[in-house]
Design a protein around this nucleic acid. Structure first.
Lengths: 219, 219
DNA sequence: TTTCTTATGTTAACATTGTTCACTTTAAAC
DNA sequence: GTTTAAAGTGAACAATGTTAACATAAGAAA
């Protein structure tokens, strides 16, 4: 007679941890209930005592994922000790680096497959707390300071996001072999973006080397 | 005794057609062998007489998909009757519109899930024929004409692609409700991109209204 | 302490998935 | 006309998510 460990303790949290660790290494598609039951030493149906179904676990993963994403990226935007363009530069870099370091999680958060779950989560969350809201607010600050062109802030924010999302996706989905030239690529991308967004006649201050060079007055 | 239609005729091509039609409406993930067998009135294993496995069918779909994509987008880049910036503007627009009209196919072509199949296909195809090569060449033309900044053409091409891929992905993956303001959004995006890429001192000609306005000399 | 209830686990079973295998039928080559 | 290979069939497999009936353990109630 095999002795079973009933009442594992904190099995629910353990499922979540294992799932997140798994996604850190492999694609969400490969995360099966068997993976979870094997890792916890439970049966394949044990999870249903803690989650309604697999999607409910995924939902939790997405929530945690967005928390992690927010913690690693948005604080920069709100750090007013930094020059405005530097905030954009650094936050953008952190964005791309998050995607590079957590490709499977990034795809889970920003891909199509679980869009229905994401939308449910984001509709509940306070919209003003989202990263995009912080981005848009920073764009508005930039316009007030005369650094950015006067334009609908929503549209400018989308342009910035699309740029960062684009380069991140190309990298993690296998279209670029940029392990080495990644920083160089990012600088070119950001220079182009910032140049396109900037207003003309204002002196802009930055402490980021590549931006200093870009922003120094020409002829 | 049921009479079976042995030797269907062109079942292989029919599988491909049905699969492409399916993807035009629903996500690749929902394309099962049962869908194909039901639609053709065959058994679920019939497909194995024409394709090694499901992935082999997907491979064919991806090949056809890239053909379709190339036909609908790249010819513009090679049309030298158009002004250079207009080529970029129009091709970019066609790119985003392709994604909007064929979201499931776009995701299949440019997503991660079947990246291994895509890479196999693209490694066989003549690289110089790819859309990216055409883009890079146009970038080089732009530099020669003094329209674009002198910069590594590869990097500039990546910047353009990332921008278009980013906005396309955001739209089709459910982050923007731009059914109405889509053209407006694209114009803003393109203006920003072009402004960032342009060289300074050259008069640039365009017949696209929004670009005319952008390019007319200021101050 | 004993009993009851509920949370939390188990096993067995199901439909659906892609896939393989032995078999059957048809078309065409000889 | 016979043979052969191409192109279909159905049964079976393992893996998937899921459900249902059952088992156990922990803690509240007696």
């Amino acid at each position: 007679m095999i002795k079973h460990d009933y009442h594992h303790g904190n099995l629910k949290e353990e499922f979540i941890t294992i799932a997140m660790d798994f996604i850190a290494k492999e694609d969400v598609e490969k995360l099966t209930l068997k993976v979870l039951s094997d890792a916890t030493g439970t049966s394949r149906s044990a999870i249903y005592k803690h989650f309604k179904n697999k999607d409910a676990l995924i939902e939790t993963i997405i929530e945690r994922g967005f928390d992690k994403f927010d913690v690693e990226t948005t604080p920069n935007l709100k750090d007013n000790s930094k020059a405005l363009v530097d905030k954009f530069y650094l936050t953008g870099k952190l964005y791309v680096e998050f995607a590079r370091k957590n490709p499977n999680l990034y795809r889970l958060l920003f891909g199509k497959k679980y869009a229905h779950i994401r939308e449910e989560i984001l509709s509940i969350k306070d919209e003003d707390c989202s990263g995009f809201a912080a981005l848009q607010k920073t764009v508005e600050d930039g316009q007030k300071q005369g650094v950015l062109k006067k334009e609908e802030s929503y549209k400018q924010a989308i342009v910035i996001w699309a740029t960062m999302h684009g380069i991140s996706s190309l990298i993690i989905d296998g279209f670029m072999d940029v392990e080495n030239v990644y920083e160089d690529m990012y600088d070119t991308l950001f220079e182009t973006l910032l140049t396109g967004l900037m207003a003309n006649k204002v002196k802009i201050i930055s402490t980021v080397p590549v931006l200093k060079k870009l922003l120094q007055p020409k002829n």
